[in-house]
Nucleic acid binder design. Structure first.
Lengths: 202, 202
DNA sequence: ATAGTGTACATTGTTAACAATTAAATGCCA
DNA sequence: TGGCATTTAATTGTTAACAATGTACACTAT
């Protein structure tokens, strides 16, 4: 058997689809999301949809107003975006330091599998999937180092930053940057790993 | 008329009460929250309760498992806590820099009203309310500088940190520290304001 | 005794109808 | 014609019943 396929609840799957739609730009900023329409699209009732909208609002992808509804957030203010990059670096540098000497063969295989997936998505031109896999790579490290708690802090920052990027900036270098990170971790060169992370986060 | 009292939806009020219960320690870590019981306690149905539990989970105060339920989170790992302090400082220093020369008389009066409220809560020994007012003070600055987006990033960090503090550490110095911040802002001494913020966040 | 299985119960997940609120459309009057 | 009140339609908020799931307990067989 290959990778253990994670079981996702209906709501998590719906949230994933909407996140993709927003990150890909298919759903543009200020687009109003109608609960009834979404319910029909996903073949559920409005209940689970409301749950998903609440979650995405807390993640910063949507803005909600009482008795009015949810709509897609606008891109981050450039100053806040710059601050976010700094915070993200701080968190992931922390993660790398914490993981020094604690990574096993299995961990490295997982990371390399993720990179392989990134590579495939890049080759296939699936840029939205590429972005999600990119996030998954970093999330793996952050979770390993700081657990669910740190992911909770880290995730809204990352997902919100991603809204601002356009695929134009995507090149094969993205995949290579992640290989650099893993290679540095493999030889337990924390300093090099931190530098690789810093180069990747921008 | 005094301060304009903000209108809160039913769900926001329920969320506030539960946040207080958790921060105050009345609800201890790992306590299981039963939807039906909460619904009866607040005189609503389970629907709004579920919304609130979802929100608090995204804030990090609760941990949820599918088909099992939500329970109160455990205190942060000390390393993550330290990291959180650093991030919070970074955000609030950013806020102070952004606000340089942009604060009006009205803003200062708002801030001083909040400090007055902190003072009253301190005198009355209402430490949970004191904590919430403390958060409100900082949120006011963060929101002013970075808007809803920055608050979204900042809030889960702060609220989660607060779970770890016990009232033992509370003294009148807490109130004075906030006066220092406002006084520095008043004379537009950003450097002093940043120092005051750094002293206060720990 | 104990590991494993099956059943009953408690709890969460989902649904569809109903209530409350908001935004838009209509009509009125100056 | 422009501003304002009123009505109407669309949308979100809430509820209670029902479905699905997980947990705990008793039972059985070895």
């Amino acid at each position: 058997m290959s990778q253990p396929q994670k079981i996702l609840s209906v709501r998590e799957q719906i949230a994933d689809v909407l996140r993709s739609d927003i990150i890909s730009g298919e759903l543009k900023p200020n687009t109003k999301l109608n609960e009834q329409q979404l319910a029909e699209r996903f073949g559920t009732s409005r209940g689970p949809i409301r749950d998903v909208l609440l979650k995405l609002t807390k993640e910063g992808l949507l803005v909600s107003r009482n008795n009015v509804g949810s709509s897609v957030s606008s891109p981050l203010n450039p100053d806040v975006q710059k601050l976010s990059i700094g915070i993200r670096r701080k968190i992931e540098e922390f993660a790398v330091k914490q993981l020094e000497g604690r990574l096993t063969i299995d961990h490295f295989r997982q990371l390399e599998d993720i990179i392989e997936e990134m590579h495939d998505h890049f080759e296939g031109g699936r840029y939205t999937e590429l972005t999600k896999t990119d996030i998954a790579f970093h999330q793996y490290l952050v979770e390993l180092a700081g657990g669910e708690d740190l992911v909770n802090i880290w995730y809204p920052i990352v997902i919100r930053m991603r809204m601002n990027y356009k695929r134009i900036t995507t090149s094969i270098k993205l995949v290579e940057e992640h290989r650099d990170i893993v290679n540095a971790l493999k030889i337990d060169d924390t300093k090099a790993a931190i530098n690789a992370i810093r180069r990747n986060i921008k």
